[in-house]
Design a protein around this nucleic acid. Sequence first.
RNA 1: GCGCCAGUAGCUCAGUUGGAUAGAGCAACGGCCUUCUAAGCCGUGGGCCGGGGGUUCGAAUCCUCCCUGGCGCGCCA
Length: 554
Amino acid sequence: MKERLAKHIKDALADCYAKGTLASGLYPEFTVEVPAHAEHGDYATNAAMLLARAEKKAPRQIAEILLAALGDGGELWNKVTVAGPGFINFFLTNRCWYGVLDDIYRHGRRYGESQAGAGKKVQVEFVSANPTGPLHIGHGRGAATGDAVASLLKATGYDVQCEYYINDAGNQMNTLGRSLYLRYRQLLGEEVNFPQDCYQGDYIRELAQEVLDAEGERYVRASEEEAVRAFAEYGGQKILAGIDADLQAFGVHFDNWYSEQGLYDRGQVEQGVALLQEKGYAYEKDEAIWFRTTDFGDDKDRVMVRSNGATTYFASDVAYHKEKFERGFDQVIDVWGADHHGYIPRMKAVVQALGRNPDDLQVLLVQLVNLLRGGQQVAMSTRSGEFVTLREVVDEVGKDACRYFFLMRRSDSQLDFDLELAKQQSTENPVYYVQYAHARVCSINRNAETQKLQVPAIGEVDFDCLTLEEELALAKLLARYPEIVLGAARHHEPHRITFYLQELAAQFHSYYNRQRILVDDVETSKARLYLANSVRIVFANALNLLGVSAPEQM
RNA sequence: GCGCCAGUAGCUCAGUUGGAUAGAGCAACGGCCUUCUAAGCCGUGGGCCGGGGGUUCGAAUCCUCCCUGGCGCGCCA
């Protein structure tokens, strides 16, 4: 809709320049927006105001000239006005709005999709939790966000791959092995000091018990080094399998699981360091190898290879991101916990050193989740083992409520997640509010069927039966859905979808309570049924983007 | 000390990459079920958009300086 109007405005500008009524010849980046107030029309453009300076005319005067060139609008609009400081307001015809309902039926579950990102390959990497413990609630928010952003990008035509980066190299795996090994010895009755820097959670003991059951006491006789390695491998695999299972229960699927260790095994970490040295971005100091990230605006240079010869996590991240772009992605999106924000400048430096635009890497920061129970904070700490796992929360409140709650706020603002509220089946709980609206339409359909009334097909509806203001308002809101999806995709902001859903549900509930869909007049019933089911389709599509189900009955 | 993010109604938050009279949910109060699901609807209040200055036709939005809060500043991952 916006694009159709924008084209008309451009044509009008061209017309004015051809006729000489306007002189600048400029085509400014004007906007076409939905005004905040209905009396300002359905859409408004600021084109005239942007030309004021170049034309040396008052904005309103320019608007009048444009207005004359815009013509009568045909079926698209029936009124155009100049208002305020120089806005041009368009009032679209009812016919045009109800035509949107036909669009919705034509595209069905694909209504809202577009081709804005066609031909672009994007990777979304998210969760990527170390395989040293189960996913906790913070990972859940990252999972819901990454998954929804991927869905949004797919819906707007991008070729999207979802990836999980497994940090299966480095110290933390050694710590995992050591933690398991020590617990194992404790289980065998040995007095063993269990250090603070080992993983404290109960799952460590459970895994150690598993090994004991399966393999008996053989690791007592093995060397500590060998045992720790074996435990690390076993534990890492088991924990990763658990993570995968938790994600599946949460409805999150990855196209690819990428191992950090693999980068080492193939020599790619060394190659990455060598490449930066060749390009002159790396240097040696104090027997360590540094990447001069300050060349690209970072605060200080960063170590890639330590003086003891060990590589840092950063070195493998250099290799990893180098490899990502080699796989042909035009854009790479990393979803991180917000506490890693200090890491962004050095990763942007990597991207630039690789000769790419820094914007080819987008880092999406996901803030902490504040877990509450009836308003009381629930304490969490990985170290002490007192954390709430994603699995526990999903089991308690359900996948739908959990995902919806995670996506209700911008990802970079902190989120209060109240378990009691998420479980409540009431007006306070926004998930049920939206799902209930969808279920209501389904219920109406079931009732219609008992009256031998089918949801009409395209062309079987007399839109003149839709005479109410609120019916028109619903059609207008449905018309905005594709633009909402596009905006949410472009900005990587799934919360825009939840806000839209909230608004659509409110309007629909209100309509439902004031008016009956199924009335005595068959033609009116059919038209209203058609409208209600357009709403249903948009609910289903939008919920699907968020990974939340659209139940037919509640 | 330096850097990043935030500060909008009593609370939790939106505000479409500068637009017109700043919105929603919750909480509070008052109403609505013999009719398609009351997990719903209708109505009522509620604001120095942290503060000062600047940029311009126009600022919650951009710049700058303060105030407050969160986070980050390892040859850890």
